[in-house]
Design a protein around this nucleic acid. Structure first.
Lengths: 242, 242
DNA sequence: GTTGACAGCTTATCTAAACAAGTTTATTAT
DNA sequence: ATAATAAACTTGTTTAGATAAGCTGTCAAC
């Protein structure tokens, strides 16, 4: 069960998505939210802060919480959202082909904590998958999952959804990820699996995912056909010190 | 002048960067922060929430605020940070060549508010610049600034820093931006200005920047040589409803 | 008509306090 | 020695209240 501010957040978000609160209009004032939901002002403010963080509203002092244009995250890179969740959200038919599954692989430790120096390796389960969107192979996903966290990863978890398996079956609490996007020329593996020629570039998303207790447990390399790649983001400006 | 929680945030961030609080160690507890800074617990918690949002710490219930690896934002795409701020932060020598400056241009209104339909245009100041890093032209920036917000934009502002001009000279409060990254083949203009051949792809970052009162006022198209492009991000997982 | 002061709304910040829940350490009972 | 218990820490959530500051309309004075 979620807490009150999260419940209010979800309710307001849903009402914004369903245009109960339309673009360009103001949400009920903070005092009205207190009355509406039977909560204190600070609880409501936390819900509003979340909406502002995620680009749903802009808070304007003296006026209220203005509903602004919220761009749906585009497929398939965004925050930490699993492929299956996104496919569901965007109503796209997808397939998921596991073409390599190695339960006894190893990876340099530096991939997880780039502290350099130590050249030791860690045991991982290695998975390679091709994501097929509307009949076309668009993405190669290479996942390496620490065996110290997930000792026996069943192949069916890779064929369905890794995140669902981690969270729902193992009860792991996935918390945050660092991510880097670069562009690289296509490799032989890219050309074979994504059916492109060597003039195509590849958008490479490398990420390290961590749990609630800050243990990094998954390293992912996601390789996208450049012509199908799209990334959307919402960012707020931080006050600059100097 | 900033508020108390922002001051505490800045102080803690600085101490993390300077390794007063080292990676893998815990910050002082919330109660200790109250005593250290003479603040209430909620005020300290706001500072900590900011650090957690930006990937400096991971809060672990029952234990404390753990300092985690914080990846410095890579040049040159990230949150809303101006080119000059980033160059300063990363200690890179850069040049900035304005090769087009048109104070009386116009842009389809849809570029700012993609509500479709209306085919009217809005008057803007149009600027095209090439960013030169270490002697090599790497980025083309095309900026379109609404004349209804900034009527007379001086050319020197484009040659120095648009953001510094907006914020420090005009007193505009820049608040948030939506951003989209795609990959596209190089155009003739790309090839000429960035000195690449037609096998090179271009990372295109299109963004709309808005003020504190939610007025969108700037549309930017930033075109990066694919081989020089790098984007880093930190994201927290949101609880998934379904 | 224009201006200025004001009241009544809004959000922003901060405080103090209470209780819940997870972690660690010390103590106690077996 | 071992195991269960309790105490003392930690963060998480919520409440109620105070003060500050921005926006808007009203109303009186000019």
């Amino acid at each position: 069960m979620l807490n009150k501010s999260a419940l209010v957040y979800d309710d307001l978000k849903q009402k914004i998505d369903q245009e109960v609160y339309k673009l360009g209009t103001y949400l009920p004032s903070e005092n009205q939210l207190c009355a509406l939901y039977g909560i204190s002002r600070e609880t409501g403010r936390k819900a509003l802060a979340g909406l502002a963080d995620n680009g749903y509203i802009q808070k304007i002092r003296g006026k209220g919480s203005l509903v602004i244009e919220h761009r749906q995250y585009a497929f398939p890179v965004s925050g930490i959202v699993s492929y299956k969740e996104l496919a569901h959200k965007l109503n796209v038919t997808t397939t998921n082909i596991v073409y390599e599954f190695e339960p006894q692989a190893s990876l340099p430790y530096g991939s997880f904590a780039s502290l350099g120096g130590e050249q030791t390796t860690v045991p991982v389960t290695a998975i390679k998958r091709v994501r097929v969107l509307n009949g076309e192979p668009d993405i190669i996903d290479k996942d390496y999952i620490l065996k110290s966290v997930v000792p026996n990863l069943p192949r069916r978890a890779a064929e369905d959804s890794l995140y669902a398996y981690f969270e729902q079956e193992l009860g792991l609490a996935i918390s945050y990820a660092t991510k880097e996007i670069t562009m690289e020329p296509a490799t032989a593996e890219d050309r074979e699996r994504l059916h492109v020629d060597d003039s195509m570039w590849i958008a490479v998303v490398r990420s390290v995912t961590s749990l609630e207790d800050a243990r990094a447990f998954q390293y992912t390399e996601s390789r996208h056909r450049a012509d199908k790649f799209r990334f959307r983001d919402f960012a707020r400006r931080q006050p600059q010190p100097f």
